[in-house]
Simulated scan of single mutants.
Amino acid sequence: MVSYLLRRLPQAALTMLVMSVVVFVGVFAIGNPVDILISPQATATERDNAIRALGLDLPIWQQYWSFLVNLFQGDVGRSFVFNVSALHLIMERLPATLELALASTLLGLVIGMPFGLYAGLAPNSRVSTSIMAGSILGFSLPSFWVGIVMIMLFSVHLGWLPSGGRGDTVYWLGARWSFLTTDGLAHMAMPVLNLALFQISMVIRLTRAGVREVILSDYVKFARAKGLTETRIILVHVLKNILIPVITVVGLNLGTVIAFAVVTETIFSWPGMGKLIIDSINVLDRPVIVAYLMLMVLMFVVINLLVDLAYMVLDPRVRLESR
């Protein structure tokens, strides 16, 4: 496993370097933050001084080189708007986004796998048909519309849940978390469910397809011939072999949920990274945008690596191939 990690690290470093060029050029070559950050009533001298202070008077290659040198020192720049470290701003919002992403992924697995398992074992039953029809709705309904309906139903009409915000938080492990308080859990309920609907539907269909394929395999037939109970066959032989595709898709989708939770965070006024990046785009706060995008690239690289390591744990063939 160590040799495998050593082979993957240069690939990850090259990926980060290429993406840094793409992100930097894409963000810094579009728009002019000076037009937004500096008052139109400012004099030409004040305008020139602000441009030099922000480093926007340099050619783009010099700006990138300065960004790259600072990046290796752990500095991604200072926010044009707040005049603090862009990474500090993002790390303050990261726990809020991680709460939603991890909770929705866990909910997707806890609900999706049992339903998908049942739908795969009894594909012709009415319950299975209803489950698959519900999964289609989960794929089809837009998250912004579902979020608005949730607010109208559970907050406005029934008054069961708060419509927005993060609620009470508890300081733990250097960050503030909502899931450790009752009020925080109440505020998390609707945004987590909104994010989880797509994942529940995806896990249901992946699990069902995997069960239908595995249940007809020779080793399952051999296990039945040995006299093993149906419960043991399902838990040991079927479930373990369908975990690989499920882990692959759910793991990669976790990065997508973290990166694109912006719609849910906006609807429910959740103070996460998504809301921060929208505000930063509106004012062309380039350092914050670049820091956010680079963090997303790093997350995808790490998640891909963790998924590959999970393969090695679940599938002995992968371990033999890596050797």
Rank of each mutant, 00 (worst) to 15 (best):
L235T: 05
A103L: 15
F154K: 05
M294I: 13
T97V: 05
M1Y: 07
L193P: 09
L180P: 02
M296H: 10
S20V: 03
L107Y: 03
F260L: 14
W145I: 15
F144Y: 14
V236N: 04
I234P: 02
S3E: 06
V192D: 00
L197A: 01
T207I: 02
M294L: 15
G26M: 11
L109F: 07
T231W: 13
V249G: 00
S104Q: 08
A261R: 00
L216F: 13
H88Y: 11
L68G: 02
M296I: 15
V290I: 15
G138D: 05
P123Q: 13
E99C: 03
R205L: 01
G31W: 09
L89P: 01
V81R: 10
Q62C: 02
Y118L: 08
V146L: 15
V2Q: 06
G164N: 11
A50R: 11
M202E: 00
T231Y: 13
M296D: 10
A53H: 11
A175P: 03
L56S: 05
V170S: 12
S135E: 00
A189E: 08
L252N: 07
A291Q: 02
R47D: 09
F154I: 09
F268M: 13
R232V: 04
A119G: 06
D285T: 13
T207A: 10
A133K: 07
G26L: 07
Q41W: 12
L137P: 08
L206Q: 01
M296C: 14
S3D: 07
A50C: 12
V69D: 03
L305I: 12
N32L: 14
L305A: 06
L109N: 04
V149R: 04
L180A: 04
P114Y: 02
H157C: 10
V22W: 05
A101E: 00
H237G: 08
M273S: 06
N304S: 14
F82Y: 14
G74P: 03
T97M: 05
F67K: 02
V262T: 15
T169A: 15
L107R: 03
A196V: 06
I151V: 15
I233V: 14
T43A: 13
W61P: 00
P162E: 11
S201W: 00
Q63M: 07
P10L: 07
S125I: 13
E99P: 04
H88G: 09
I234M: 14
N32I: 12
G116N: 03
L100H: 09
F198T: 03
V23R: 03
H187K: 13
W270G: 04
N194E: 13
L98F: 12
S155H: 06
G77M: 14
F144Q: 09
L306K: 02
S20M: 04
L314Q: 04
Y171K: 01
R208V: 04
L276K: 00
G108Y: 03
L243V: 10
V84W: 08
S269M: 05
T43G: 15
D48F: 06
L121C: 06
R126H: 10
I244H: 01
I234V: 14
L54W: 15
L14S: 11
R93Q: 12
L298E: 02
W177V: 03
L295H: 01
T229N: 15
L141D: 01
W177H: 11
V203Q: 03
I148D: 14
A103T: 07
G251F: 01
A29I: 08
V27L: 12
N253K: 08
W65M: 10
N304R: 08
M16H: 02
A310C: 12
H157E: 15
A223P: 03
F72S: 05
I30D: 04
M1N: 08
G112T: 04
D168F: 11
